[in-house]
């Protein structure tokens, strides 16, 4: 029910970036692994409604990201590697509040939600701080706050720890995995993180090569890298 693709092809420019992708994913947390250029980001962006399929059918939370992108985005959050690109407002609290624009909350309720979220991600003391002057780890936590303040049902994260050091990467991952009733699709090169998921998908050359238990899929990926 959560994510279903059948016979999906995505063409970008001159290339078929995804080819004949079919998948039925209903785990709470799913890892997406594969080499650079194998189509992981394209898959993630497809799920988030940021690009549309050329062929086939896609259902995310029962919605078609191609035609119901707005409704879908209201229920999903997307996290990128580069936190700088995700920060819009000049101060931390304003940036989190920005995610709630147009959601119809009154000023008190809005403030409440922002504060609760900032507390949860350990940013409460930085609420009035300039968001562009945060450290890389803090920026990614701010991006997480901006995502989670909307209580998404599905979080799609495209290598969210790629720019972080080990400690911050772990910190961000812990937040992503903490069960707050959301599902998680995690694109990652960190195979330890992939092992923490309930299921894993291996992409190779624009196709899905294997889906299954993370242990098995990661082992296959490592075999693939050896030859």
């Amino acid at each position: 029910m959560s994510i279903q693709l059948s016979g999906v092809r995505v063409r970008l420019g001159e290339n078929d970036v995804l080819r004949n992708v079919s998948l039925d994913l209903d785990a709470r947390t799913g890892a997406v692994i594969g080499e650079n250029g194998s189509g992981k980001s394209t898959f993630a962006r497809l799920l988030g409604g940021l690009i549309s399929r050329t062929e086939g059918t896609v259902r995310v939370l029962g919605l078609d990201p191609g035609t119901q992108a707005r409704q879908l985005r209201r229920r999903t959050a997307f996290l990128f590697s580069n936190p700088d690109a995700q920060i819009v407002m000049p101060t931390v609290a304003e940036d989190v509040a920005f995610s709630l624009r147009g959601s119809g909350f009154g000023p008190d309720e809005l403030k409440d939600r922002v504060n609760t979220t900032l507390n949860r991600f350990g940013l409460a003391a930085l609420a009035e701080h300039s968001s562009h002057d945060l450290s890389g780890g803090q920026k990614q936590l701010l991006a997480l706050s901006g995502s989670f303040v909307r209580c998404p049902e599905l979080v799609i994260a495209d290598e969210p720890t790629a720019f972080l050091d080990a400690r911050n990467a772990r910190h961000v991952a812990d937040h992503l995995f903490r069960d707050t009733g959301h599902r998680l699709v995690l694109v990652t090169h960190d195979l330890t993180l992939a092992q923490r998921c309930d299921t894993a998908v291996l992409f190779a050359d624009g196709r899905i090569r294997t889906v299954g238990a993370p242990g098995t899929v990661v082992a296959e990926y490592e075999r693939m890298l050896e030859c």
Binding site: G49, L50, R73, F80, A85, Q86, S99, G102, G146
Partner: peptide
């Protein structure tokens, strides 16, 4: 990236 991020933030 910012365009994508804005879209993703609804």
């Amino acid at each position: 990236e910012l365009g994508d991020a804005l879209a993703a933030r609804g």
